[in-house]
Each structure stands twice: as structure tokens, then as C-alpha cells.
Amino acid sequence: MVDTPAKILKENVWYSNPVFIQILGICSTLAVTNNLMNTVIMTVGLMFVTGFTNVTVSLLKTLIPRKVRMIVQTLIIAFYVIIVDILLRAYLPDVSKALGPYVGLIITNCIIMGRAEAFAQSNGPLLSFWDGITSGLGYMWVLMIIAFIRELLGFGTLFGFPVLPAGMTHWTIMVMAPSAFFLLGTFIWVAKSIMLKAEGGK
């Protein structure tokens, strides 16, 4: 079975999307989706970490003893997360403050570990990098849609710019935790229904 870059892209962005099919990595990031800017930064950080972790794991795969590979992978991930954290604090201190502990929590984001384990362990560095980036992309667009809805209805803004007329009442619930669960649940429903329909049509 040979994976072509195009196929990996399609798999990671839609058919086995990390968020709505594999339900991975939603822990750390539902919390940041009430603001588009934070979501973009967070997902770009995740993309960076996933991509480079995959490359590193793929390059080192013959050197890492199987028994300790989990902890080695975790350390590799932690290494890249520290880089992201330091970069954020240096160039975007406000965003870094707003994200708080959630940057560090990229470490325990199951997507990264999952991709390192499932893909990078058995593929070359370049393909692994591509796989990491596309997984990040699959993660990004779902979160962007959720963040778009939450910020628009919750604050009436997009990326901080007021979009809705000032008289509109803000939906406070959209800023709070439950809405993230509802929106992600609904998103999964829509995506699954589309997939079921496509399968039925064949």
C-alpha cells in the first residue's frame, strides 16, 4: 500500500479527520475556540508541533527502543511545544497570556502522539512531515468553523473587528463552555450525515 501525498491530504482533512472522525485532541482546544485569533495561533502551533514531531520520530524510529518509545515521543513533543511557547511569549505576549496553560497542553494532545505512533513509525521523514501538516490542517478548519460561530454570536466580532450591528444582543452562552460541546456535537452530526449519504449513494 503506497500512500500518495494527495491521498494523505484527503484522508486527514476529511475521511479520517482527527476531530470529527477520530475524536482526538479536543481536550485542550475546545477552550480556545471562543476567539478566532487564539484559535488560529493555537492550531498553527499544533500544526508546527505535529509536523516536526513526525519528522523527528520518523528519522529516529530505528534508534528508539520499542519499549520506551512512548516516553521518547512525549519528550520530542515537549521539546517542540517549548519552542512554540517561547516564540509565542516573545512575539505575541497577549495571545500567550490568553491561551494560558493550553499551549503546554499541546503535549497531551492525542493527535500528535497518534500520528507519530500510527504514521511516522512506519514512513519516511518527508511523507511524515506532510502527514503531520495535513492532520493539523484537518484540525484547523474544524476549529475555525466552531470559533467563527462562537465569536460572531458571542461577541459580535470576527478577529476582534465588530461585524454585527451594535444593537444586537450577544449570546452569552456562546462564550461559555456548553456551546463548544453543542457546536462540536452538531458539527459531527452534519459531517457524519454527509458521509453516510455519500456511502448510501454508491
Binding site: 456535537g185 452538531t186 452530526w189 459531517a191 457524519k192 450525515s193 453516510l196
Partner: peptide, 8 residues
Amino acid sequence: PAGLKGPG
């Protein structure tokens, strides 16, 4: 509903 089963 079928699409909502499971994680949804």
C-alpha cells in the same frame, strides 16, 4: 439519528 450516534 444515525449521523449523531456515538461521539456526536
